[in-house]
């Protein structure tokens, strides 16, 4: 399945947001996820299905002023 993650096209074999985060080896408690510009709440990561060409933003906290 083709996904656009943080602006980059990637190929992933995953059904849900949770699967994707596991594939990316990301801990759920340090990321926030937007799917096609809509927030996906953490409690919905397991149930939110991904489709071909979905656009995801996966963000975390970094240093800033």
């Amino acid at each position: 399945m083709k996904l656009i993650i943080n602006g980059e096209e990637k190929d992933f074999d995953c059904e849900t947001v949770s699967n994707l985060l596991n594939n990316l080896k990301l801990k759920k408690d340090i990321v926030a996820v937007e799917l096609n510009k809509n927030i996906v709440h953490r409690e919905n990561f397991d149930d939110t299905k991904l489709r071909d060409n979905d656009k995801l933003e996966i963000v975390t906290v970094v240093g800033g002023g």
Binding site: I58, V61, V62
Partner: peptide
Amino acid sequence: TVALRRVNFEDSKENILNYIDQKKYTILPN
């Protein structure tokens, strides 16, 4: 204060939150 940015997939282990004790500091995102 902290900022929010796209996850860096090459270096996602080192998270700044590990260095900010949230019992001591209140985080203000920008």
